[in-house]
């Protein structure tokens, strides 16, 4: 059986190198037969593609796509004063 670290590395490479995603900043963890994706992307389509590519790279694992969407908020928050 392939060690979980190698499976996670293979999934991470797929997310980075697959033309549908090319996403480098996703954390991939394998625990038993569970595959966890964590990180932040700017839109839901990319989150779904990441889930798909991860599933294709490790179809035997149960996928938990916990990636969050950021940058869609219109609340600007506070400006920073540099002086």
């Amino acid at each position: 059986m392939e060690a979980p670290q190698y499976v996670a590395a293979r999934v991470q490479q797929a997310l980075a190198e697959d033309g549908r995603t090319n996403e480098l900043g996703i954390r991939v963890d394998v625990r038993g037969d569970q595959l966890f994706l964590r990180g932040q992307v700017s839109e839901a389509g990319q989150r779904d593609r990441l889930g798909l590519v991860a599933h294709e790279a490790a179809p035997e694992l149960h996928l938990h796509n916990e990636i969050t969407i950021v940058g869609d908020v219109f609340d600007q928050g506070e400006d920073e004063h540099l002086d």
Binding site: G39, V73, D79
Partner: peptide
């Protein structure tokens, strides 16, 4: 980086602007 900011852009004010 957008995921770090968590908002569309940051604003930095120089010399007491804003």
């Amino acid at each position: 980086a957008l995921p770090v900011l968590g908002k569309p852009y940051a604003v930095y004010c120089m010399d007491g602007a804003c």
